[in-house]
Amino acid sequence: MTDAPTKTLSLEEVKALAKSVLVSAGLDAHSSEVIADLVRMSERDGPRSHGLRLLPVYAQYLSSGYANPKAAPSIRRIAPGVLRGDGDNGFYQVAALAARAELIEMARENGIAAFTCANCHHLGALRFDTGPLAEAGLVALGVVNSLSMVVPQGGVRPVFGTNPMSFACPRPGSEPIVWDQASSMVALMDIKMAAAEGHDLPRAGGLDTDGQPSTDPNAILETRSLLPFGEHKGAAIAFLIEVLGAALAGGTLSVDNQERESFEALNIKGGTTLIAIDPSRFGNPAFNDYIARICAEIEGNGAARVPGDGRLKNRAATQVNGVSVAPDLLAQLQAL
């Protein structure tokens, strides 16, 4: 017996499919456009665990009543360099897009500015919020806390979420440098995708039922106990994000997920913070030269590469060849 062949979709077909699923789930036209484009870019650049495979989760948020399908986020300036958002129980990316122009203006005016947002849902890659700021010539840092499933080093129960962070900065003469990563050894969606595809993780990403580090994605999903990257160092980063995300924004702490459980949702309504810095206001006129030098020291240095540049190769390939979608996933999405 052979596996059913995959189907190749163009990136525009990916976006159209995503938008049709979101609209069918009740999401309004504007939010559907925003989220569908994020799905397209995730399939384009990778990791694809943040693309089409997230659509059933988005749909569940909407169909269960956990997320507001017609959210109208509100944003107000509460200090010269601080914007505060309320997502109206919608998706964070919609609120972040609404705040982007004013955040950029504030950073150029003050040298540094921040946007915090609560009462919102976040699924997907943070780099699509930091990247546009780098394209505008700014340095950006974004964080969001998430459902507790990461065990602190030496602990016996999860305290932190996978708590991702993203960094971006302009690069003279080339695409901005943009990367994001979870505070866990492996992102949750990568574990779920490995389980769906029937293979182990390349390295131990969580604990099994005996409390031992494991590469078995099904065992990790059963315990929902992930390992932080770099042991105590990754746990410290997860703590930092819990403070910069939940505490500053007033979002739900990673351990407080009773509401999520009642809706059988994947994630909590965590807090997000996006910081924008204008390097031209920080007193070093040679900033771009520094960035170029750092990159030059990495490029051609064995197999090393500038963080995030692997996705640029993926982008070039998928823009030409499209993306291959597994038949079971395609059938699931078409049924939605």
Rank of each mutant, 00 (worst) to 15 (best):
A235H: 04
R77N: 01
M165L: 13
A236S: 14
H121R: 10
P170F: 05
L9H: 12
V143Y: 03
G245Y: 00
I112V: 15
I220F: 07
Q93K: 14
G46Q: 12
A113H: 15
G85N: 13
N163G: 08
F167N: 00
Q332S: 13
E231L: 01
A79E: 08
V39C: 09
D88P: 00
F229L: 02
D328V: 06
I291Y: 12
L123A: 09
F282T: 04
H50E: 09
R171M: 03
L336A: 04
E197K: 11
L248K: 02
G124N: 10
A187Q: 08
R127D: 15
A99I: 10
I78H: 02
A59R: 12
R53G: 12
N321M: 07
G251S: 03
R48L: 07
Q153E: 13
V320D: 09
D88Y: 11
D216H: 01
S74Q: 12
A140T: 08
A29E: 14
Y61T: 02
I268T: 14
A326M: 13
S49Q: 09
S280W: 00
I291L: 08
L330H: 13
D208E: 15
L55Q: 15
D309W: 05
F239D: 06
E264S: 14
E102S: 11
I78T: 12
H232P: 06
L240T: 07
I241C: 02
S20I: 00
D289T: 06
L201R: 10
V34D: 03
L333G: 02
R203S: 15
G124Q: 11
R157M: 01
F115C: 00
H30S: 12
M165F: 15
F229V: 05
A99Q: 01
S214Q: 05
D328N: 09
L188N: 09
V178W: 13
T272A: 10
T116P: 06
L126W: 06
K192V: 12
L17E: 00
A168W: 09
P164H: 11
A304W: 15
D200G: 13
K233D: 04
A114E: 10
N288V: 02
A316R: 13
G85C: 08
F167W: 10
E264P: 13
I241V: 14
A79Y: 10
L274Q: 10
A18C: 05
A168F: 03
N314C: 01
A304I: 03
S174N: 14
A95L: 03
R40K: 13
L54W: 15
G198I: 02
Y58T: 06
A331C: 06
G131Y: 02
E105K: 15
L138C: 01
H50P: 05
A238D: 12
Q334G: 08
A238E: 07
A276L: 01
I291F: 03
L266S: 11
R203G: 11
V21Q: 04
T223S: 01
L226Y: 02
V186L: 06
K192E: 12
A25F: 04
L227R: 00
F287R: 05
P158W: 09
R305V: 04
N301Y: 12
F115L: 07
